[in-house]
Amino acid sequence: MGNGVLRQASPLAVISSIGNDVRFAEIGALIKQWEPTLFVVGLPMHPDGTPHEMTARCRKFANQLNGRFNLPVVLVDERYSSAVISAKRGDVIDDRAASIILQQYFDEYVPSN
């Protein structure tokens, strides 16, 4: 989650449910609680910027978010977000990587006041 006024991102939750219906229900509950104005989705690519299988999956997920919740979605290059964090695996790296992706959005796309 992030604060657009302060331009600060912080980890909120990791949604690891299996199955789209449960996953989107959990996202819906977070939307109801936090009332976001947009989604920021990381867009993975090869180091040279070319797309791969996960690129298409993330674009599909972004389209589903927009379609289900009628909020704008911004795709942000996530090639190096996980590299910023230690080589740990699991939820800890997932929520921090997501926070880094959101912070990158604030730093690159949101004008400072």
Results as ranks from 00 to 15, higher is better:
residue 1 M to T: 06
residue 4 G to W: 05
residue 4 G to D: 03
residue 7 R to C: 00
residue 10 S to N: 08
residue 10 S to V: 15
residue 10 S to I: 12
residue 12 L to T: 06
residue 12 L to N: 14
residue 15 I to E: 14
residue 15 I to R: 07
residue 15 I to Y: 08
residue 17 S to A: 15
residue 17 S to Q: 11
residue 18 I to A: 15
residue 19 G to S: 05
residue 19 G to F: 06
residue 20 N to V: 14
residue 22 V to T: 15
residue 23 R to L: 14
residue 25 A to P: 05
residue 25 A to M: 12
residue 26 E to D: 09
residue 27 I to Q: 05
residue 29 A to S: 07
residue 31 I to H: 00
residue 32 K to L: 06
residue 33 Q to A: 05
residue 34 W to T: 02
residue 35 E to I: 07
residue 35 E to T: 07
residue 36 P to H: 04
residue 36 P to W: 08
residue 37 T to S: 06
residue 38 L to M: 08
residue 39 F to R: 10
residue 39 F to N: 01
residue 41 V to I: 10
residue 42 G to D: 02
residue 42 G to N: 11
residue 48 D to E: 02
residue 49 G to Y: 12
residue 49 G to N: 04
residue 49 G to P: 03
residue 50 T to H: 14
residue 50 T to R: 12
residue 52 H to C: 01
residue 52 H to S: 06
residue 53 E to G: 04
residue 54 M to R: 09
residue 54 M to H: 11
residue 55 T to M: 08
residue 59 R to F: 05
residue 59 R to K: 14
residue 59 R to A: 03
residue 62 A to D: 03
residue 63 N to G: 13
residue 63 N to K: 12
residue 64 Q to N: 12
residue 65 L to H: 01
residue 67 G to L: 11
residue 68 R to I: 01
residue 68 R to A: 01
residue 68 R to C: 00
residue 68 R to H: 05
residue 68 R to Y: 12
residue 72 P to Q: 10
residue 73 V to D: 06
residue 73 V to N: 03
residue 74 V to P: 04
residue 77 D to M: 02
residue 77 D to G: 00
residue 78 E to G: 00
residue 78 E to S: 01
residue 79 R to Y: 01
residue 80 Y to K: 07
residue 84 V to W: 10
residue 85 I to R: 11
residue 85 I to D: 02
residue 85 I to Y: 12
residue 87 A to D: 14
residue 87 A to I: 03
residue 88 K to L: 13
residue 89 R to A: 02
residue 90 G to M: 10
residue 91 D to L: 06
residue 92 V to Y: 11
residue 93 I to T: 05
residue 93 I to E: 01
residue 94 D to N: 08
residue 95 D to F: 14
residue 96 R to W: 11
residue 98 A to T: 02
residue 99 S to M: 11
residue 100 I to W: 15
residue 102 L to Y: 03
residue 103 Q to V: 00
residue 103 Q to G: 00
residue 103 Q to L: 00
residue 106 F to T: 02
residue 107 D to K: 05
residue 108 E to Y: 14
residue 109 Y to S: 09
residue 109 Y to V: 12
residue 109 Y to W: 09
residue 110 V to K: 05
residue 110 V to L: 07
residue 111 P to L: 13
residue 112 S to P: 10
